[in-house]
Design a protein around this nucleic acid. Structure first.
Lengths: 162, 162
DNA sequence: TATTGTTATACTCTATAACTATA
DNA sequence: TATAGTTATAGAGTATAACAATA
């Protein structure tokens, strides 16, 4: 269970030109950089597999989760997932058609739309959370508690400052 | 520079129902799970931004990198990026049209195709590596060396065993 | 005039099935 | 017959521009 913890040796990441004369940190960044794209892709594939039984794609799951947590308008949501407003409109239309969210005009500023999760939407968001947690449990089975904590700490700063 | 290192406090990840009665590891997994999907998405967006000047999408960059490292046939490549053979065929066609790779039948088994990177392909792969390394340098600016090493160690095991 | 959101359009990506060629 | 790869087709996802409504 502690297999990958606290190694000080340098693992060979992707097999291309190691910068021999670079500093320690620069070497780490190089290795990390080479691993990040494959990791992103494998995470994407894994998430699509985990979400498919629930009929959601990654971006839909992200949007639904944000709505379930109370994040409101289409504009806010499109900024969160870094996508253009028209796509958010179509995403929300899909979620609304499936009875997962509602759209209603904001009384204070009637240009603005309030988006809320329905009971079914909250239930699906929870189900997706559980499914993804199961996948994570399996994925990180060989990672030590200390390393998990480091990942949580680093990720927290990364998603906060994109 | 050591800002996010070795915290033992529990950061609040996404703001949904913390499992108070769960074990320590289970709580870590929950937090990590809640962060992983947003992280994947933000990595995807960042990679698209970094690759766009080079006219590549993430999957194209992954395939080109694999080819530049000597990974050979369409079948192998489609397994690496977890995609169906027809899509790899179309991807390789695009890369070939742009003069980045060549396709030639394998003399030993003429059903099999050898895919190789051209000089331009190798050059572009290097340029992409550099661009992505720059992005990583910025992204991880606030992460300590120790934490970087942990990330490299964990990622290495994760991409090896999907 | 500026902002929020939607509709319209075209383009790209991806998956499935049918087909060709070699073993 | 089984395998490697391509072509064909259809469907889903995404981006850009034009539009409608409110402030």
């Amino acid at each position: 269970m502690e297999r990958v913890s606290n190694l000080t040796s340098t693992p060979r990441p992707a097999g291309d030109r190691p910068p021999d004369d670079a500093g320690d940190r620069e070497r780490l960044l190089h290795d990390l950089s080479a691993l990040t794209l494959p990791l992103m892709w494998s995470l994407r594939q894994a998430s699509m597999r985990a979400l498919e039984p629930h009929g959601l794609r990654p971006i839909q799951a992200l949007v639904l989760a944000s709505i379930a947590q109370g994040q409101g308008s289409p504009k806010t949501l499109s900024e969160i997932v870094e996508t253009a407003p028209p796509m958010m409109s179509s995403l929300l239309g899909d979620l609304e058609d499936r009875g997962l969210v509602t759209r209603s005009p904001d009384p204070e500023d009637r240009r603005r739309i309030r988006v809320d999760a329905t009971d079914a939407g909250h239930a699906l968001a929870r189900a997706v959370d559980d499914a993804w947690l199961d996948a994570s449990r399996e994925r990180f089975a060989d990672v030590s508690d200390d390393d998990l904590r480091t990942l949580v700490d680093v990720y927290t700063t990364l998603v906060r400052t994109p």
